[in-house]
Design a protein around this nucleic acid. Structure first.
Length: 273
DNA sequence: ACGAGGTCCTGCGAGC
DNA sequence: TGCTCGCAGGACCTCG
């Protein structure tokens, strides 16, 4: 499931392939991935446009088309690929096929279509961007900034971490991992996290996200890098997908619960307080 | 402002 | 074998 490291990997892989290319024509096979944009406006907005830049913000891949932005949020099962030919499987799940001026095709592939596509002008993008929390790998994201963001909410710390308005780009996998590394009980109220623990969490978040980027992301099922390869970070996970297995730090059997926001939370009763 | 729960969407695996 | 059903979940919504 593409979170910050996965989208960062996709964007880094595709940037040299796509920047400077012009989109000749576009095919959209399903309208249900569109959010706040009609089929007609999306297709008109892509056709004939040159890709000026490709960047990441939170869990979104952002195509700068000059004057407006094509924003792809891969959701659970979305991926972006650039290919010369499509396999039958790729064709079946390719929600968007954009023909490029070098003869290749940019594909947005999404089996479950929980991903979303947006087309925003400059003002709309600025407003959207302003609604997202700070980037955890930004040098301006200090431990103090994290503590400020957490102080205001009584929500469970894990839910707060996954709230894109609080911090951008963190989803279920890295929230579980960072809380384990920082030794914080995922159900603890965010505002009750001590400054010391918050400092550990800041370090853990930056370390885990950076390490996951270096391993090209975590592939549980569907996620692929921009070159179609699985990521490698799934082999380094400490708690996620390890419910019932021994804690790597103390050997206690890791617990699993759905009590927080109906998502699987895996943690160590002994190491996380 | 909070939590709880529903919705979207499809593939997969369990159970019968 | 072939079916039904529950589950996976990020974002967004409504309700109390």
């Amino acid at each position: 499931m593409p979170e910050l490291p996965e989208v960062e990997t996709i964007v880094r892989d595709l940037r040299p392939e796509l920047v400077g290319r012009t989109i000749l024509s576009t095919r959209l096979t399903h309208d249900d991935v569109l959010r706040g944009v009609t089929r007609r406006r999306l297709l008109a907005g892509l056709r004939g446009r040159r890709i000026r830049a490709l960047t990441r913000r939170a869990k979104h891949a952002v195509f700068d088309l000059g004057g407006h932005y094509f924003v792809v949020q891969p959701g659970m099962t979305g991926s972006l690929l650039v290919q010369k030919d499509l396999t039958a499987d790729e064709r079946h799940y390719a929600v968007v096929q954009a023909k490029l001026d070098d003869g290749r095709v940019l594909i947005y592939h999404d089996v479950r279509r929980l991903g979303t596509l947006l087309l925003l002008n400059q003002a709309e993008w600025d407003a959207y961007d302003a609604g997202l929390g700070p980037e955890p790998l930004d040098p301006q994201f200090t431990p103090e900034r994290l503590r400020e963001r957490l102080r205001g909410t009584r929500q469970a710390i894990k839910k707060a971490l996954m709230d894109q308005r609080v911090i951008a780009g963190v989803g279920n996998i890295y929230a579980n991992e960072a809380l384990f590394i920082a030794g914080i009980d995922p159900s603890k109220e965010a505002r009750a996290v001590t400054p010391e623990a918050s400092g550990r969490l800041h370090t853990a978040l930056q370390d885990i996200l950076q390490a996951a980027i270096e391993s090209k992301g975590t592939t549980v099922r569907d996620y692929r890098t921009g070159t179609g390869q699985p990521g490698q970070f799934q082999f380094e996970l400490l708690v996620y997908e390890r419910e019932g297995e021994p804690c790597r730090r103390c050997g206690t059997t890791l617990a699993g619960t759905h009590a927080i926001d109906a998502r699987i939370t895996v943690f160590c009763h002994r190491c996380q307080r």
